[in-house]
Structures are given as C-alpha cells and as structure tokens.
C-alpha cells in the first residue's frame, strides 16, 4: 500500500511537472534511527494570488486538514508525531519559546529560493546540506519538556500547483538537519495534501 502511494505521488509529481529536492546533513542516516518521536510545529498554508494588489493569504481550513494528517501518518510510520500545540489553548511557553523556534526554522529554511530555481524542475535530487544552518542554542531546554530533540515544520504555498517545504531541526545540535522542497502541480485537495505529506515523511524515515 505504501509503495503504491509512493509510486502514485511520484507519478503525480513528475507526470505533471514539478520537483523534489532533498538536503540532509552528512550524518543523517545515523540520526534517522533515533527519530522515534518528532514534534510537529503548526503547519502554514499560504495562498498566493497576484493581481489584486494583495499577495498572501493564509488558509486556516487547509492547515487544520494538514494537522489531522499527522495523526494518521504517525500510525502509518509507527513513530510518534506529536503536534507542539493544538493552537487553541493558551500555553505561555508555547508562545514564548516554541513559536520563536518555528520562526528561526523558517529563517534557516528560507535561505534558498527554491521556488524560482528552475534547475530543479522535473527532477528528484538528494544532496548533503551545503550550509550549516543554525538556530539559537537556548531551545535545548525544550527537549526535556517535549521528550525529543527533533522538531519538524512544513509549509505549503498554493500557487500554480503546491509548493511544500519540510524542515527538521535538531535542537540538541542547534541546527537544521534535513530539508525537502517540492513542487507538485495538483490542486490543494485533502487527498493530495495527505499524499504529499506521506511522501515527505516516507523519504525522511526511509531514505527512499
């Protein structure tokens, strides 16, 4: 079933144009086995439309759909994938620390302009992380509370298909250890989002 899904998403990716670009730190294979638990930061879904003097808009409903997908992925992969917060409760530490971490991950992940780089088109590439992307060292404290050093964050941009970026940070090492950028020319339906997420975490956990 998993294999089928992977083939399907690969077909969707390359059959309709698009790319998958993965970068991971050199020692990533040894880290993968330690990733029993991943803390998932709230995903973001942006809709980008030009022409009305207004560019970005968040899609709250899509974000909720994606959040639910993580619970299903957790079962499929047999690894704990815990949302850092449900986003509706008031946990001061969440706002004071976890959200800062999310923003730092966004900065570190945004250093390359995947979106406009046409050289990726139609390919799946896997490379070692060429740049050391650090995050502040004071997030070490979160490891105790959340029981894992691995925090992942995904954001989606709907514009001419869907662009998705998934980043995994190791807060013990204070750096980004894995990044996957991909563009798939499909609509942002629930099933498509589910498949994209599955595909990303399948690559993360299995190296395939």
């Amino acid at each position: 079933m998993r294999k089928f899904l992977f083939i399907l998403i690969a077909f969707l990716t390359f059959g309709c144009g698009g790319y998958i670009h993965i970068e991971k730190q050199e020692e990533f294979a040894s880290q993968r086995s330690k990733m029993d638990k991943i803390i998932v930061l709230q995903p973001d879904f942006f809709v980008v439309k030009d022409g009305y003097n207004y560019k970005n808009s968040y899609c709250y409903k899509k974000e909720k759909i994606i959040e639910k997908s993580y619970a299903r992925l957790s079962k499929r992969f047999g690894r704990e994938m815990v949302m850092s917060s449900n986003g509706e409760s008031i946990d001061p530490e969440y706002y004071n620390t976890v959200m800062r971490l999310k923003k730092e991950i966004m900065i570190a992940s945004g250093i390359f302009d995947y979106q406009s780089d046409k050289s990726y088109e139609g390919k799946k590439t896997t490379l070692p992380l060429s740049t050391n992307l650090i995050i502040s060292p004071d997030y070490n404290q979160l490891q105790k509370k959340y029981g894992s050093a691995y925090f992942s964050y995904s954001y989606f941009i709907e514009s001419d298909g869907i662009f998705m970026l998934t980043v995994v940070a190791d807060i013990f090492q204070s750096k980004i250890i894995y990044r996957e950028a991909k563009r798939v020319h499909v609509s942002a339906k629930k099933d498509n989002l589910d498949r994209m997420l599955f595909n990303s975490y399948y690559s993360l956990f299995t190296d395939k």
Binding site: D44, Y58, Y60, G87, I90, Y94, Y95, M99, K103
Partner: peptide, 21 residues
C-alpha cells in the same frame, strides 16, 4: 488577560498572528 476574544475571532489574519506568537 487572555486571548479568548482573539481566539474566537473569525479573522484569519488575527488567528495567524496569535498562533505565531
């Protein structure tokens, strides 16, 4: 001193600001 009114807000932009700290 809480965020209840903002959480209840139907405004997507506000929700995002709150959620992003």
């Amino acid at each position: 001193i809480d965020l209840e009114p903002l959480f209840k807000s139907t405004d997507v932009e506000i929700k995002h600001l709150v959620r992003n700290g």
